[in-house]
């Protein structure tokens, strides 16, 4: 179908990204921030990050090891994002809890216990190029034939 092809095409070409920090050490945050710098320039791939607003997001970049406050809010936030959407967990903390998953912790890793995660990027922190690569790699796969997948469910 031509409409399906068109949908796949535009969903591959345009992403709005919202970045959420759920209790990281900021290391991942600044590496995400570094992806917008001229050296990496996330925007040249059609990824829009300048007014992050969950209402218009396609990709949620989530770092950090889910703290107490985020336990309930994370689901609310996820529900606010319109379909189709993709969650990318950045950094060791979001993947597994990393260094903070130890005795005496006040966190609730990993992230995938709370919301469905499509991709995980390990690293403490991962390099900006890796983050960029992950977004561009995973989102088209999830968005491809999204409507058909929904219908088949």
């Amino acid at each position: 179908m031509i409409t399906d092809k068109l949908k796949n095409f535009v969903r591959r070409k345009s992403f709005h990204v919202t970045y959420v920090d759920t209790g990281s050490c900021n290391g991942c945050s600044i590496e995400v921030l570094a992806t917008i710098c001229p050296r990496y320039d996330i925007e040249q791939y059609g990824i829009f990050v300048h007014h992050p607003n969950p209402r218009e997001a396609d990709v949620l970049l989530i770092t950090g090891c889910v703290t107490e406050q985020w336990k309930t809010k994370l689901k609310e936030l996820y529900d606010k994002v319109p379909e189709p959407k993709v969650v990318v967990a950045i950094g060791a903390c979001a993947c597994s809890g990393g260094i903070f998953d130890q005795e005496g912790k006040r966190t609730h890793p990993p992230l995938k216990n709370f919301i469905p995660v499509a991709a995980e990027i390990p690293g403490c922190p991962p390099r900006p190029s890796e983050i960029l690569d992950a977004i561009l790699g995973v989102a088209p796969i999830v968005f491809k034939d999204y409507d058909k997948k929904e219908a088949n469910k």
């Binding site: 920090d21 759920t22 209790g23 990281s24 950090g64 090891c65 703290t67 107490e68 406050q69 985020w70 903070f100 130890q102 005795e103 005496g104 912790k105 006040r106 966190t107």
Partner: peptide, 14 residues
Amino acid sequence: LGYMHRGIERILKG
């Protein structure tokens, strides 16, 4: 505050 509290001082003890 409280969105970033990981309890790092507690983890450090011991």
